[in-house]
Design a binder for these strands. Structure first.
Length: 283
DNA sequence: CACCATGTTCCTTG
DNA sequence: CCAAGGAACATGGT
């Protein structure tokens, strides 16, 4: 679930649930998640601390915290990796199989679960400092974006996954943005025309903004209701495939292009799937 | 058993 | 030093 839109939607969901909740106990179920902190350091830093706010940067969550005695503020960084989930539940709800970190909040608990354990929940903030501009903010401008693309000979699809170019685009939305912009994914970044740069810049913003819109309405309203606050993004019953229906090329290999009816093709770039329409996205 | 999966980092090569 | 390619990480679904 984790590209920028999914992170944003989950952040909006968690935002009102956390402020002023105090961490009474910290359980690290899988040490790797907390790296480069040690479980002991991590626990000591969070014990007694209070959540004060939550923001997002790229695919990262930035939890604003306040230390118990010193009142000093600090940031807890979260990343969902490929399979991470975070939610706040009553303590009566049993922990999932792959509970990586659990924060005891009193009557509730904050759960970070991750089946593949690729994610992070840590006090180390170095990875955020290397991120490129936030795509939906005014920091993301077509000219610097184009200038960065001109410096790279990589295939544009691969370049879009570079978080220092622009933060938050992942494998799904890279394919989606290129389809919207009508650009072939194999095209070298430095060969895009100024018009293509402009179109891609706009497509990235459109695709991400629409995905946020989508995620913040249907799944959110349905989730949490019956299950005592349990929140599973995109997994609300009956709307399971709403998410996929929005996507125009991703995971649609062999199916007709929504614009020209010719089959969508899947190729592999940098060991990851790319989906595109060879007709609508020509070199 | 084989292959695939929304991500990042580390190592190697040139 | 940098760009680029590939493996590694770990588990589960098909």
């Amino acid at each position: 679930m984790p590209e920028l839109p999914e992170v944003e939607v989950l952040a909006r969901h968690l935002q009102p649930l956390l402020p002023e909740k105090k961490i009474r106990e910290v359980l690290v179920g899988r040490a790797k998640i907390v790296l480069p902190d040690s479980p002991a350091t991590f626990r000591e830093a969070l014990l007694g601390a209070t959540f004060t706010g939550l923001t997002r940067r790229g695919k990262y969550f930035l939890f604003q915290m306040r230390r118990a005695k010193s009142r000093e503020i600090f940031t807890l960084l979260g990343h969902l990796g490929m399979t991470g989930r975070m939610y706040v539940t009553p303590k009566s709800i049993p922990l999932p199989k792959h509970a990586a970190v659990v924060l005891d909040l009193g009557r509730e608990q904050f759960v970070y679960e991750d089946t593949r354990y690729f994610g992070r929940l840590t006090l180390d903030l170095t990875s955020v400092t290397e991120l490129g501009p936030e795509p939906l903010s005014a920091d993301f401008q077509p000219e610097p974006f184009g200038a960065a693309l001109r410096r790279s000979k990589q295939a544009i699809k691969i370049k879009l996954l570079d978080q220092s170019l622009v933060a938050g685009v992942g494998n799904i939305y890279a394919s989606e943005a290129l389809f919207r912009a009508g650009i072939a994914p194999q095209k070298a970044a430095n060969r895009l025309t100024p018009k293509q740069v402009q179109a891609l810049w706009a497509a990235i913003r459109t695709v991400l903004a629409e995905a946020i819109e989508c995620g913040s309405t249907i799944p959110l309203n349905m989730a949490g209701g019956g299950s005592g606050g349990l929140f599973y993004f995109g997994l609300a019953a009956g709307v399971t495939d709403y998410y996929e229906e929005r996507l125009r090329v991703y995971d649609r290999a062999g199916r007709p292009c929504l614009q020209c009816k010719r089959p969508i093709r899947r190729i592999v770039q940098a060991a990851r799937s790319t989906f595109f329409c060879p007709h609508c996205q020509r070199k």
